[in-house]
């Protein structure tokens, strides 16, 4: 369990993190969302014991990261922003170093290194010097390093940044597979990623917590939630007819796509009934779940309150 208690970090008068408090329990995959400079990385640096908070603290399984930093670090695996590693070493040497530093038993170091190499598909480059690897491979080395001791808590700062689509999928699968009875915190700018792996989202801006919810609940805040979008010929005419339905609150026409916003239940049924009654040629029709990017925008630009 991670208990964050009024965590703050200031650089001079500038507050990078401003009085954050939250609790994360085993089984949760928490995603930090927020604009650039929101304080996501700074928060992670404090949780992992790298930065000392200006005030407040965090307890990692009851151990204070400020008072007892080295002990608290033991249960954490951490991928710092930018995935730094010792470039002059080979992948295998580097992972060996981290494994020993993670206090893995001498006889199990080789096994742990091999397992991490396998999980992140690094076998082909394990004897290559890290400096000469491409960006995505470096990121994967960073991830391998973070999971090498099978930590109970994983903190990953932009884990899929720079990965190709296949590797992104692999890494998300890996995160989901590890999620059971672990605590995983990731930060990301990829909203699909949040929907794909997280079961909890925190939106942070200017160091403050603006929203803390499940991805589904956040999506439901979208004005697109339960809206119906369709593409049809003679859209203007169709729009005016559908706009008369009692279930429709608003109609928007955007690049040939018609979106109907609900005024109550049963919008989709009413729309399909009207379409078949008028025998319109509809080339696309869907019920919207909601749009996370729109929710993100509304919340971080000071629109809807949390």
């Amino acid at each position: 369990m991670i208990e964050v208690k009024s965590l703050s970090k200031s650089y001079g008068v500038f507050k990078a993190v401003d009085d954050l408090s939250f609790t994360v329990r085993a089984g949760q995959v928490l995603g930090f969302l927020g604009p650039n400079g929101a304080g996501k990385s700074t928060t992670m640096k404090m949780l992992t014991g790298f930065l000392t908070p200006t005030s407040g603290t965090a307890l990692i399984n009851g151990i204070d990261v400020v008072e007892n930093s080295v002990l608290a670090r033991k249960t954490i695996g951490y991928l710092p922003e930018g995935a730094p590693s010792y470039g002059e070493m080979t992948v295998q040497q580097f992972l060996g170093f981290v494994a020993r530093a993670r206090l893995i038993d001498k006889n199990s170091v080789a096994v742990s290194v091999d397992r991490a190499i396998e999980k992140l598909n690094l076998s082909d480059v394990k004897h290559q010097v890290i400096e000469t690897l491409s960006k995505g491979f470096k990121r994967r080395v960073g991830l391998a390093q973070a999971i090498i001791h099978d930590p109970q808590i994983l903190i990953l700062d932009e884990p899929t940044d720079g990965l190709d689509p296949n590797q992104k999928r692999e890494v998300r699968r890996l995160i989901r597979a590890m999620a059971k009875d672990k605590i995983i915190i990731i930060s990301t700018h990829i909203l699909e990623e949040v929907e794909a792996v997280c079961n909890r989202v925190m939106i942070i801006a200017e160091g403050r917590l603006l929203a803390d919810d499940s991805p589904q609940a956040l999506i439901m805040r979208s004005r697109y939630h339960n809206a119906v979008s369709l593409v049809v010929d003679a859209a203007e005419k169709v729009a005016s007819i559908l706009g008369e339905l009692p279930q429709v609150a608003r109609v928007e026409l955007n690049e040939g796509e018609l979106t109907l916003f609900p005024a109550g239940d049963g919008l989709f049924e009413a729309v399909t009934a009207t379409i078949s009654a008028n025998q319109w040629q509809v080339s696309a029709l869907r019920l919207e779940a909601g749009r996370l990017d729109e929710v993100f925008h509304t919340i971080t630009s000071g629109g809807a309150a949390a």
Partner: peptide, 14 residues
């Protein structure tokens, strides 16, 4: 410069 200091000091060593 390379940022490895963050890696080093989040390992369990003093």
């Amino acid at each position: 410069r390379s940022g490895t200091i963050e890696l080093l000091f989040t390992l369990p060593l003093t």
